[in-house]
Design a protein around this nucleic acid. Sequence first.
DNA 1: GAATGCCTTCAAAGCGCTTTGAGGAGGGCG
DNA 2: CGCCCTCCTCAAAGCGCTTTGAAGGCATTC
Lengths: 341, 341
Amino acid sequence: MRLKELALHLGLSQTTVSRALNGYPEVNAETRQRVLDAARRYDYRPNASARRLATGRNNAIGIVLPTDRNLLLDPNYIEFQAGLGERLMKDEIDIVLSPSRAGDEMATYRRMAISSRVDAVIVSSPTSHDPRIALLTELGLPFVVHGRSESPIPHAWLDIDNEGAFRHATQHLLDLGHRRIGLINGETRHTFAADRERGFRKALAEHGVLAEDNLIAEGVMTDETGYRITARFLAQSPRPTALLVSSMMMSLGSLRAIRSAGLDLGRDISLIAHDDVIPFLNPDAMVPTMSTTRSSIRAAGTRVAELLMEIIADGRAPASIHELWPVDLVIRRSTGPAPRD
Amino acid sequence: MRLKELALHLGLSQTTVSRALNGYPEVNAETRQRVLDAARRYDYRPNASARRLATGRNNAIGIVLPTDRNLLLDPNYIEFQAGLGERLMKDEIDIVLSPSRAGDEMATYRRMAISSRVDAVIVSSPTSHDPRIALLTELGLPFVVHGRSESPIPHAWLDIDNEGAFRHATQHLLDLGHRRIGLINGETRHTFAADRERGFRKALAEHGVLAEDNLIAEGVMTDETGYRITARFLAQSPRPTALLVSSMMMSLGSLRAIRSAGLDLGRDISLIAHDDVIPFLNPDAMVPTMSTTRSSIRAAGTRVAELLMEIIADGRAPASIHELWPVDLVIRRSTGPAPRD
DNA sequence: GAATGCCTTCAAAGCGCTTTGAGGAGGGCG
DNA sequence: CGCCCTCCTCAAAGCGCTTTGAAGGCATTC
């Protein structure tokens, strides 16, 4: 069923039918109802491409999906997508995933912009000098950065307070008497990881504790990395009495290493992990329950979608959008006072 | 830069420029090169909507993304997406994610079809009588089912041999002398889980072993479910000497329960998990290394994309597409002979 | 009764591309 | 020399929608 046919059926012009459907005021209420009823009856829906061509709006937002194995392909990402979806659903906005090899990302953003497939895009996991920000600004494609970059170009971003989170977590451990604390981080080329390290170091410095390089390590945030680094840390003498871990996934590996070493989590050694609140990794379900710095990545997705809508629908200025979310410190059973020796 | 302007710059008609760009044969080689060069110089790209409207092809395939917490939101899913992307990238095909609440999925598929946003869709995690198959067939929107359904309607599908996989795994355990084997499965309303249970039961029956209902359990495939069910199984007396687990994620929970019970994996109890080959859950990195039934979900994604392309680009008949992939049984250190008692 | 204005509807012009059907130029052949 | 082909290029007609600018119908006002 096309608009033309529908209009014909109704004995009205395309103009009137289109206006009735799109809620324009200059249509008689009775006529509008008649149109609406007919549209429902015939299961009419405007052709998306035609509408896009005519209006210039795509009703879609874009994400570049790197297909190589890297950060984005972590389990959090689908949760972020779901968060986005939750908000975009309301306005029937699609999410366009443009697959891209790691090296081609810039070209892919370019393609999305120039062929005008989407109204805006999301920039995930920015690096400190992320070139995507300059590119998109130059191309005039609106975007929101999920995370932060140090780019001098004004732009919209939403981030969690990674520095504060790790600073508080470290402080908490210091207050419990821990002095040898290990940091198992994500890759510091990503700002979130660099921020966490900074928070960690600041807290140590504030307590006059020296940060030891061999207790700071980074890597892709997998179970395996968690295991490896933890095992390495535990082999040191004296060994650390507490660990700060950048993801729940990594912490699973840490847990194994801790058990293999015959240590009792929460007594012999304390651990705080960062929790993105993903449904299949529940800190309350762990044994012992896991102390965490917590911030829902799904909620962030929803909010990013909301901000995107404000930019493209309401014309809000991207440069006015800077949200820094506080992070909860949730103490459970994986932390305890530093053991005496 | 629009086609019109580009043509103007070149002193050619739109037709010729369009044909040169799209590789039609009736363009002089020299002219074509001139056009191509200019297109590159001006960074010209056809407007996606206009092209779609003109050709009727969307160069996009659709996925309905249920935003509620359920099966799709598991860590495997992003890996499947990456697999899809790997293939679709080549032809610059986009993936359109249409967010949907669990109850509205049918409406969302309908919307995608009628407003012709995509050329085909993917049906994931089918149930045994999945209504989406009838709907899409009726709407005339091509699709490939990832998994299997019992629908009598001819349709394209790609699945792994879940029944065979679990049958072989069970056989292997039986050959090792195990007689009390527990099955920790995904929800059996999904065919993959039902198939696995069938394979499990068949193998037991072939060996004259009675399947015990209190050693068969199912649930959402999380770490937590794995822990709970395993703990429950281990509390029985006599306890099972082997476990079959439907996902690596669940097996992490099983591992914890096994350790909590003070059992030694690979000696006191054996475990085989199904491995979808996701980068952050590596069975070789576990301690002990994990015996698995293995099939790459990323590879499946790539192949599904390939099949989709064959249907929409080459006009291959969907009903001719039925692929059942064999599953590897990889024996590592989490399995061993049944302990004598 | 004519003029004014509002409400409602319409025809037609795009949006930027592909594709059809037609035509001009140049070369080969009789 | 004229005719026919082949090769290349073109103008124009869509694709299905939104939106502009215009106009008809009717009630209100002077």
